[in-house]
Design a protein around this nucleic acid. Sequence first.
DNA 1: CTATAATATCATTATCTGCTGATATGATAA
DNA 2: TTATCATATCAGCAGATAATGATATTATAG
Lengths: 134, 134
Amino acid sequence: MLLAANAQLIALEAKLFHGLADPSRLAILRALLDGPLTVNEIVARTGLSQSNTSNHLACLRGCGLATTEQNGRFVLYALSDERIAQTLALADEILATVAKSMYECVHFQPAPRRASARAASTKPRARAARRLRA
Amino acid sequence: MLLAANAQLIALEAKLFHGLADPSRLAILRALLDGPLTVNEIVARTGLSQSNTSNHLACLRGCGLATTEQNGRFVLYALSDERIAQTLALADEILATVAKSMYECVHFQPAPRRASARAASTKPRARAARRLRA
DNA sequence: CTATAATATCATTATCTGCTGATATGATAA
DNA sequence: TTATCATATCAGCAGATAATGATATTATAG
């Protein structure tokens, strides 16, 4: 069956698309279409929190979709491949046709992502000890 | 900021990519690259369960990525737009470059999806009543 | 009509995932 | 060194989601 034959490739494709399947990451990638940006610039342009932005950037970088370049205290992020821009453009073309159904599609609700994680780290960081040694 | 300006488009892009971000759905889409298929043919080629296949097909159809045509007792599924094939091809090109990092990327683990839903519907279906009326 | 093939629906649940708040790390200026 | 800016990491949780197993629905053959 098809699945078995291309399982490996399909798994990678799924990961790649998954990387593109989040509004926050898409906003970051679109911001990078205009050229490399520092983290703070990305934060400013996307409106995401610093922490959240950094997490997504780590994700994009880890998956190879973005590259980094240290620049003094700053880190410049950039798209790793021009085909990423092409993919986004192609997606927009597809949406020109299926936007309506896609909008009405109930699968994959964007997740309300309520701003209320109400979390509070109770356990002390192990790294705290490391600093004491320094 | 960018996010606000293109929020709507970005949300649709995210949904579109999310539709492509699952191994099972990708296997289905790739099977359809060769032309329309019935559900059973897709089941045979992908190795997915009938129920699972049907669920994913409903998803793909609902999002506008696939179209259907009733053919007697069969339902033929097909890709709705040739650009979907182009997108998959473009993804493969990108992977030719980033496959290694993508493979090693720890974000988005394919989900072991253990075969143990251990479920058992306890509530009777409301539709059962409907049938009695007929 | 009845049996059966083909497809669709649905509840359940194990698991994944993005967000936040706090804090750590790194780099540079003073 | 110390203060401070820039970025990274982490824990925990609320919510999303794919697979299963059972069952419903639809269509055609007999």
